[in-house]
Nucleic acid binder design. Sequence first.
DNA 1: CTGCCTTCGTGAATTATTTCACGACAATTG
DNA 2: CAATTGTCGTGAAATAATTCACGAAGGCAG
Lengths: 214, 214
Amino acid sequence: MLSQNKIPQATAKRLPLYYRFLNNLHIQGKSRVSSKELSDAIKVDSATIRRDFSYFGALGKKGYGYNVEYLLGFFRKTLDQDENTPVALIGVGNLGTAFLNYNFTKNNNTKIEIAFDADADKVGKEIGDIQVHHINDLEKHLEHIEVAILTVPLSEAQNITDRLIQAGVNGILNFTPARITVPENVRVHHIDLAVELQSLAYFMKHYPLENSDE
Amino acid sequence: MLSQNKIPQATAKRLPLYYRFLNNLHIQGKSRVSSKELSDAIKVDSATIRRDFSYFGALGKKGYGYNVEYLLGFFRKTLDQDENTPVALIGVGNLGTAFLNYNFTKNNNTKIEIAFDADADKVGKEIGDIQVHHINDLEKHLEHIEVAILTVPLSEAQNITDRLIQAGVNGILNFTPARITVPENVRVHHIDLAVELQSLAYFMKHYPLENSDE
DNA sequence: CTGCCTTCGTGAATTATTTCACGACAATTG
DNA sequence: CAATTGTCGTGAAATAATTCACGAAGGCAG
């Protein structure tokens, strides 16, 4: 039931989505919500939602639904919303800048604390309140950082990955097209924009009108 | 075998990845590759790769592997690399600009042909060779466009989605946190950057060292 | 307070995907 | 040309995820 050990990965990926949506409901002053309503809003089958929630125990009331505040409190704990995860951003190009300007801390337990770039013009600047440091000083500033967002050119990807890991990072959100190699204990999530776009085009041509999303 | 009808979605999502990597091998002058080598490079189990390829027939040779050029030619046809998919970009903010500057046409059958924004300062400019038009003129310029990348503020997401669909778009790559509502025949892929980051943090804390990637 | 209505929680069925493991065949070596 | 090696293609098993469908519990209306 409560052990975080047995939650399916597919469920774990949906948790942040649930959390954000519940937060919105709460802000709107709604106190009650059913799996059906949630389903309409976030486009996940209602049985899947009930099943997901059930991994954490019986959170709802039959014939009523879920209490938004209670559920929200529960998810806050589960997702460690209290404890912020400090994040480093590597590569202040267009995409990196998008991240710096994006306000992650709303509804979110992650915060970009520091940024790095190789371009001397960018070093020393502050973008979205975040200081940009030179990539050469990477090792000096990564003391307590475990997560990095990688938005560097393809050619630098593996090299910088190695340095990040050396410096103690063990989670990387990789936006480069490189399939970087890391030790077993390091977790990498790849988001490959070109692949996403191609994949959408492929699905459109070959899967006329089935279930899509992702 | 050849019908595109029976390919699992999980396989379809990997096809662009295979394609790009084969293309790289080809450029490097390699003429031969085994499922094991591919596996090491793109971090997908070799049995999965062989299974994926097998949906298209027997493409390899036992005891030898796959002929890069042959395989590449095959994928080119399968992924319709010949035929370019024209794409519109909606919202020229930081993220949108990243897309415009990103050169998708290398190794890719998709091309951003036109961009839209509500900001008068941006309208008329050219970014990465793409003309920026005013969002009011959306309907005037979407004649032959079927795919849109949505990088607008949350508040505009549904409204603009409706207009896109009205104008004939039937595939949307949605980077807003909104879970947009669309008719059945429209395909949406959501890429929610905040969710991705939170999800990575969650996995790191709760799934010590199992399989990650995505 | 009664009875109808809603909606959860979940066992079981279904569907999807991955992985194992091995036979068959081609390449290569001596 | 025989023996050895490498690697595919795939049946079958395993694992993962979704969906069905219904009993139980509780809300709500009259």
